[in-house]
């Protein structure tokens, strides 16, 4: 009997291995394990063999049944996978064709740089404030210590509206608006459009600035220096040297221009990046802050200038031409 089982086993295994379709597998399964299969014949004949041999033969026959079932199942999985693979491999779609659909849009470089500048300063605790583009003479000039006949008005080529208001010449009026509304401490930045009527090839009548203001007790010039150094190093990289150069703005005293060393075509030069200074005491008086209790610093920078340096843009007009071939590079 053992020999019969062995012969069934080797015969069955070779048949299973030769299978190559699910249909054949179903047939073979009933041939090998069905009621009329040789293995079933063996099991049926068990009562005929001597009692002492029955457990051995029975155990062997059942093990064989289990093994054949397992092998058939394994073969079934193989055949199913093969069939799916064959089906998948028949799909010959050309995946190298270009994709179609809406391409991604683009941010204007002014937006990118404004966000960049604001995100750095935001982290230093400066809140973003906005103000109107059409301003009063008071907010744009007078409160900033630029009286009606101040020579510094020459530094601002101002657009006037017919009702005697002005297009703000800088974002500094947002300082005034904020100080008129709130008490110190104040830490704000104000990004936005500003206007000057001196258009030529290197100037645009409309451009963008970010203004910063920090007012509290005991704010020092060294705080201004530390803040702007940290900011500029983050903006341009630590390898750039920074210098503070004496300048003049009516609304700050001392006033400085801040230059960053930059290497262009192998030549290192100082690029004028921003203006800054300690808030003038007359500005505090205009917003009813006590100049003996508070000090502060203010700074401002031109977004176009930063964008032109970072992206090596050589003509300011590219920003407002809005040519598709320019816009889609950002």
């Amino acid at each position: 009997m053992i020999d019969i089982l062995n012969s069934i086993k080797s015969d069955s295994i070779s048949k299973i291995n030769e299978l190559d379709s699910l249909h054949e597998l179903d047939q073979l399964k009933s041939f090998l394990l069905g009621k009329k299969s040789p293995l079933m014949d063996v099991l049926k004949d068990i009562p005929k063999i001597p009692l002492e041999k029955r457990p051995v033969i029975g155990k062997e026959a059942n093990q064989l049944k289990q093994e054949l079932t397992k092998r058939l199942n394994k073969k079934r999985d193989e055949l199913i996978n093969k069939e799916r693979d064959d089906f998948l491999n028949q799909n010959q779609a050309d995946v190298t064709l270009p994709t179609s659909g809406f391409p991604s849009g683009s941010y204007h470089p002014i937006t990118i740089v404004t966000r960049y500048v604001c995100s750095i300063l935001n982290r230093y605790g400066y809140a973003i404030k906005q103000g109107p583009n059409i301003e009063t003479d008071f907010n744009n000039f007078e409160a900033l210590n630029i009286g009606p006949n101040h020579p510094a008005r020459d530094m601002h080529d101002t657009f006037y509206l017919k009702n005697k208001t002005v297009l703000r010449t800088h974002t500094s009026p947002v300082q005034i608006r904020t100080m008129l509304e709130q008490e110190p401490p104040i830490k704000i930045i104000a990004p936005g459009k500003v206007y000057r009527c001196d258009a030529d090839t290197s100037h645009s009548p409309v451009f963008h600035q970010v203004e910063g203001l920090c007012v509290d007790k005991h704010i020092t010039f060294s705080d201004l220096k530390g803040t702007l150094e940290a900011f500029l190093h983050e903006l341009f990289g630590d390898e750039h040297a920074i210098r503070f150069r004496s300048s003049y703005f009516p609304f700050t005293e001392p006033s400085v221009e801040v230059d960053v060393s930059y290497t262009i075509n192998g030549k290192t030069t100082w690029l004028e990046i921003m203006g800054a200074g300690m808030v003038q005491r007359n500005v505090f008086r205009q917003v009813s802050y006590d100049p003996d209790s508070y000090t502060g610093f203010a700074f401002g920078l031109g977004i176009e200038r930063i964008a032109m340096i970072l992206y090596k843009i050589d003509n300011i007009r590219l920003f407002y031409e809005n040519d598709h071939r320019f816009l889609t590079q950002f």
């Binding site: 809406f102 391409p103 991604s104 849009g105 683009s106 941010y107 204007h108 002014i110 937006t111 009548p205 409309v206 920003f319 407002y320 809005n322 598709h324 816009l327 889609t328």
Partner: peptide, 11 residues
Amino acid sequence: VANGFNEVNTY
């Protein structure tokens, strides 16, 4: 921008 529009900045 995510939906395919290009941002512009005009006078």
